[in-house]
Design a protein around this nucleic acid. Sequence first.
DNA 1: TCGGGAATTTGATGTAAATCAAGGCATGGT
DNA 2: ACCATGCCTTGATTTACATCAAATTCCCGA
Lengths: 241, 241
Amino acid sequence: MSKQIDIGRVLANLPLFQQLSDGEIANLATGTREIRLEKGRILFQKGCALDGFYITVYGQIKLAFSSLQGHEKVVSIVGPGQSFGEAVMFMEKPCPVMAQALENSRLLYIAKQGIFAAIDHDSAFAHRLLAGLSMRLHSLIQDVENYSLRSSTQRVIGFLLQLAGMPTSGPVEFALPASKHVIASRLNLTPETLSRILHSLSESGLIAVKGRRIVALDVARLSRFDDSPPPPCAKGSRAVR
Amino acid sequence: MSKQIDIGRVLANLPLFQQLSDGEIANLATGTREIRLEKGRILFQKGCALDGFYITVYGQIKLAFSSLQGHEKVVSIVGPGQSFGEAVMFMEKPCPVMAQALENSRLLYIAKQGIFAAIDHDSAFAHRLLAGLSMRLHSLIQDVENYSLRSSTQRVIGFLLQLAGMPTSGPVEFALPASKHVIASRLNLTPETLSRILHSLSESGLIAVKGRRIVALDVARLSRFDDSPPPPCAKGSRAVR
DNA sequence: TCGGGAATTTGATGTAAATCAAGGCATGGT
DNA sequence: ACCATGCCTTGATTTACATCAAATTCCCGA
């Protein structure tokens, strides 16, 4: 029922492979498998070795680890066009996280063999890989910064602003990329806390929430937001007593 | 008074450059500057661009960011033989952290030009760089895992075990690599909390602390340590009342 | 050897966010 | 349409860790 995709074509359109020669693309395609994954399915577990990496064609994959006590922490939510697993492949060590489909998804699995050949053959490709890994590193550092010295409200705001995109003046509408449960975990919060924060932000008139849809009413004020909104007594302004 | 170091020689001995040809090493050396930094000096600020990276010859550098409220969080403590700044160099974006000397230090600054040439010339070198960045990424993920789902005591224990090295049966002695203040920040703790945890671990007979020197008395038990040591009433076993 | 300032420890108190425990609201299957 | 099953929200309570405030101890140079 589902039509076969043209692997070479998909590969050639990815930013990472954009400038490779036809021969190289063909070579890569040889070592590439298509993978379909239905919602909820686990792609690999923490501790697996990978001798290749993945690119999401469509769908959504979450990368997460779980503690001994059964808690789970989402490290990354990866969507169409994004890749994952490169670092594990280059490192030749067990994968530190597990990967699970959040939706029915289609991925490409690219064997390292072809990647290595492309590196050997085209040093500009190596540069792109290095830059890509560096960006990944950078965003992880950002995460660490967020977790360590930003409050939960600030983390939520940062996340919303990222989704809202470039600073515009008017209101921006967008959808959360996953269930609130997953988003909360990604931000190192419990779902309860996320819910309360979203509630309090809408009470302050900064955003409007309707299920997964969110309207950032005042992006500028959101960016400035400093925490500490409920000064003395809240809405029911009764006698100070 | 201080003798000039032989840059080529130092470079050639670094694991990263081990297998480069003499010509390549000479080329790298051309773009390499020696940097002396006295304790407390700042090497670069958050937001700087780098068009090269650093290798510590001796001394110690801390990488950290600081919040608007003046708090500081140490991301990494880098010692002799270790490098930093590669990711920023490859990314061509402002550096997300600042770098400051914790001791009088000597560094090498290697211009990207020579590195890029070496990549173009020797794809095995590119592989080593990729593997190196991947390792860095891996350890950052570990950090995120530690911060998000381990308690402060567990983080301290993990850190101590890492310093203690391979699992041996007998007691292991070692020194903390920096002041407790810096270590605490590295572990996302206040100095007070670190002090209390160390105290409680020595009370449990797991370690002995003498200034910066620490003896891990029972590595196996440390690894197993589960948190939750003070069940009902502590040492002074008085009437339950 | 002797100060003096920083680093560390210790204790009392505060607080952000987690946990526990119900409710309300959608959503999809029959 | 109906119920059932998950998702999300809301409220009460707990807790791990931070913060504030003093001691103490360490360390280093004069």
